[in-house]
Amino acid sequence: MNPDFTKYADGLMPAVVQDVNSGKVLMLGFMNQEALDQTRTEGKVCFFSRSKQRLWTKGETSGNFLLMKDILLDCDQDTLLIKAVPVGPVCHTGADTCFEEANPSFSLQQLENIITDRLANPDESSYTTKLFQKGINKVAQKVGEEAVELVIESKDDNKELFLGEAADLLYHYLILLQAKQFKLDDVLRVLAARHKEKQRGT
């Protein structure tokens, strides 16, 4: 990655910060080479503050840091995309984002990441780890059981029980995908291809 800071007279490049789990855009800041280097070294997103005229680590006063997970550069090499995990509200107003959007504290992507970690780093106290260790047949069986339980609850009017079974099915479905070495994105690609075919009238 070779960002071209010389494209800007002040040497400051726009840096868009995105929540790595929810995909929400959190804020826009500016970086010079030094700020980028510090972000990579410390793992906390650092900008160059135009008002303070110095390096500024987001959260250095409030404690609401942005923990860097990935850094991408656009095709023109003049804008950065920082994928991060926010520790608390991002905006100085107390809002989740600087664009007044709510940012969910938990997402399907985050759940999938947890399941991935349990597969890569087994924890004997974890239900997910224990289920993986029982093998693909047991995982598939659990998905079938949860699907049947969801169908049964759908025939009644108990909202909490229905949503609980729906959550159980989704959770075990994600485990099955991982056990088969797939991710939710793989399924979404199939759905996207089907949608594209439908639009073409095929």
Rank of each mutant, 00 (worst) to 15 (best):
P3T: 03
A9K: 15
A9Q: 14
M13W: 05
M13N: 03
A15G: 02
V16P: 03
Q18H: 08
D19Q: 07
S22R: 06
K24S: 11
L26C: 08
L26D: 08
M27W: 09
L28N: 03
M31Y: 07
N32T: 10
N32Y: 06
Q33S: 14
E34W: 01
Q38S: 07
T39H: 08
T41G: 00
V45D: 02
S49F: 05
K52I: 00
Q53R: 11
G59E: 03
G59M: 04
T61E: 10
S62N: 02
S62C: 04
G63E: 04
L67D: 02
L67H: 09
L67N: 05
M68G: 05
D70A: 12
L73N: 05
D74Q: 04
C75P: 00
D76V: 00
D76K: 01
Q77N: 14
D78G: 04
I82V: 15
K83A: 02
G88E: 10
V90Q: 05
C91T: 04
T93F: 06
D96F: 05
T97F: 10
T97P: 12
C98G: 05
E100C: 07
A102I: 14
N103M: 10
P104Q: 06
S105C: 11
S107D: 09
S107E: 05
S107I: 08
Q110M: 15
I114Y: 14
I115C: 03
I115K: 03
I115Q: 06
I115T: 07
I115M: 04
T116R: 13
T116S: 10
L119D: 04
N121H: 15
N121K: 14
P122S: 07
P122T: 05
S125Y: 09
S125K: 15
S126L: 01
Y127M: 06
Y127T: 07
T128E: 13
T129S: 14
L131C: 06
I136D: 09
N137Q: 13
V139W: 05
V139E: 02
V139L: 08
A140I: 07
Q141P: 00
E145P: 00
A147L: 15
L150K: 04
E153K: 12
S154F: 04
D156L: 06
D156M: 03
L163R: 11
G164E: 12
E165G: 01
L169M: 06
L170K: 05
Y171T: 13
Y171I: 12
Y171H: 13
H172W: 03
H172D: 07
L174R: 11
L174Y: 06
I175M: 11
I175R: 08
L177Q: 13
L177F: 11
Q181R: 13
F182Q: 15
D185Y: 01
V187W: 10
L191P: 01
A193P: 01
A193N: 09
K198E: 10
K198L: 14
K198A: 15
Q199D: 10
R200M: 14
T202L: 14
